[in-house]
Amino acid sequence: MFPEDVEIYLVNEENQTLNEALTFNGRAYLFDYKKGDFVTRNGKLVEVRGKKAVEAWLEKLIRTEKFRFRIYEEDGDYVEYAVSIEGLIGGIWPKGFAESEIKREITEAAAGNPYIEELTEWSFERNDDYLYIRFTVFTVEGAFEMVVNM
């Protein structure tokens, strides 16, 4: 779509850097991963705050594979917003190793969110072609269970 020699940067009115733009600000927009599109109401994106925003942010983080998309690259370096778990899901790795690495990747990536205090009570369930990753998220506003199917 764009010529390869054109670089696109994510900026706003204050001309912030990509790392600053990806910093969680307590708000997020709902995204329907089954439909592959943002959730809208009356033609506007549905914005969520609090625990729902943390949940939306975490799911996007988990579904964003590190080093795949150049939008998450700044000055030749990739920003710390993504995980490397694709090769661990359904791969050749032993189950215990893969689950431990998935947990580590998500925990380390989520540590950049000031609203998240802890991720605990991890479980993994394989069903047909999917891996269900389940854990409890403790935030500054309370806890909730997170389930992501990959």
Rank of each mutant, 00 (worst) to 15 (best):
M1L: 08
M1R: 06
F2K: 14
E4P: 13
E4H: 13
V6Y: 09
Y9I: 01
E14W: 10
E14A: 15
N15G: 11
N19S: 15
E20T: 03
E20A: 15
A21E: 05
T23R: 15
F24E: 04
F24T: 03
N25A: 06
N25L: 05
G26D: 07
G26N: 00
G26R: 10
R27G: 11
A28H: 08
Y29K: 09
L30M: 06
F31N: 05
F31C: 02
D32E: 05
D32A: 05
D32K: 12
D32F: 03
K34A: 12
K35L: 13
G36M: 03
G36L: 11
D37S: 15
N42M: 05
G43A: 04
G43V: 08
L45C: 01
V46H: 08
R49K: 11
G50Y: 08
G50T: 11
G50M: 06
G50K: 00
K51P: 02
K52Y: 06
K52Q: 12
A53W: 00
E55C: 02
E55L: 11
A56N: 02
W57M: 03
W57L: 03
L58Y: 10
L61A: 01
T64D: 04
T64H: 01
E65R: 11
K66S: 00
F67H: 10
F69C: 01
R70I: 06
R70E: 10
E73L: 15
E74D: 04
G76S: 10
D77V: 01
Y78P: 04
Y78D: 11
V79N: 03
E80C: 09
Y81E: 12
Y81I: 00
A82S: 15
A82N: 03
V83H: 08
V83E: 02
V83M: 12
S84E: 12
I85C: 13
E86R: 13
G87V: 04
G90K: 06
G91W: 08
G91E: 06
I92L: 14
P94S: 10
P94A: 11
G96C: 04
A98Q: 02
A98H: 03
E99A: 06
E99R: 14
E101S: 13
E101F: 08
K103I: 00
K103G: 03
R104A: 08
T107D: 04
A109V: 07
A110Y: 01
A111H: 10
A111L: 07
I116D: 08
I116L: 13
E117W: 02
L119F: 02
E121L: 12
W122Q: 05
S123F: 00
S123K: 12
F124P: 04
F124V: 06
F124A: 07
E125K: 15
E125T: 13
R126H: 09
R126V: 08
N127R: 15
N127T: 11
D129A: 14
D129T: 09
Y130K: 14
Y132T: 10
I133Y: 04
F138Y: 09
F138W: 06
V140L: 15
V140P: 07
G142Q: 07
G142P: 04
G142T: 05
F144A: 05
E145G: 12
V147Y: 04
V148Y: 10
V148P: 06
V148H: 02
N149F: 09
M150F: 14
